[in-house]
């Protein structure tokens, strides 16, 4: 199986990896670069567990050919912790998910964080529950029933709009 050299931009860094041409971005992230935050769920676009951002837009890494992502800015859940909004290695969304118990088994959480982060950036103000529902409509969670996930995303958008002291 011939491998090709891929040059990718991932979480702000240039990385090189050799992988077969038919591999997806998800396979390269997980099995070549050891970035196993993005999860392999249904592997055919239904569940959203593999969501990453390409040029700022949330997309499915399981349906993106790795070679087609060359030259574009890929961001995974591992990169959230050192975004400008993060403090103590933790993005306000991650902090809110922790405080609201928005993760149970946690398998869907990385994908949901990437979809939610793109929403907060796009909207740029406090989001409504309906906006969160719409933005997360491609991310399945089988544990929580979504209520606390929506609570957490709304809370994170409030924190970003007006940081409050919660020590």
């Amino acid at each position: 199986m011939a491998e090709a050299l891929l040059s990718l931009r991932i979480n702000g860094e240039s990385v090189h990896a050799a992988a077969p041409a038919h591999w997806t971005l998800l396979e390269v992230l997980r099995y070549r670069l050891d970035l196993i935050g993005s999860k392999q769920g249904c592997d055919k676009g239904d569940c959203g567990a593999c969501t990453v951002q390409v040029d700022g837009e949330p997309v499915l890494a399981c349906l993106t050919l790795a070679c087609a992502a060359a030259g574009r800015e890929v961001r995974t859940v591992e990169g959230l912790g050192w975004s400008p909004e993060a403090s103590n290695g933790c993005h306000p969304l991650q902090d809110a998910f922790d405080r609201w118990d928005a993760a149970q088994c946690g398998f869907c959480t990385p994908g949901i964080l990437m979809s939610a982060e793109a929403l907060l950036r796009k909207v740029g103000r406090v989001v409504t529950r309906d906006e969160v529902r719409e933005a997360l409509a491609g991310n399945l969670c089988r544990c929580t029933g979504y209520t606390k996930i929506i609570d957490a995303v709304v809370d994170a958008s409030e924190m970003l709009a007006a940081p409050r002291d919660e020590t």
């Binding site: 959203g48 349906l63 993106t64 979809s115």
Partner: peptide, 9 residues
Amino acid sequence: VASPLIRNM
């Protein structure tokens, strides 16, 4: 069509 993620692609 489908979900926001699929519409982005």
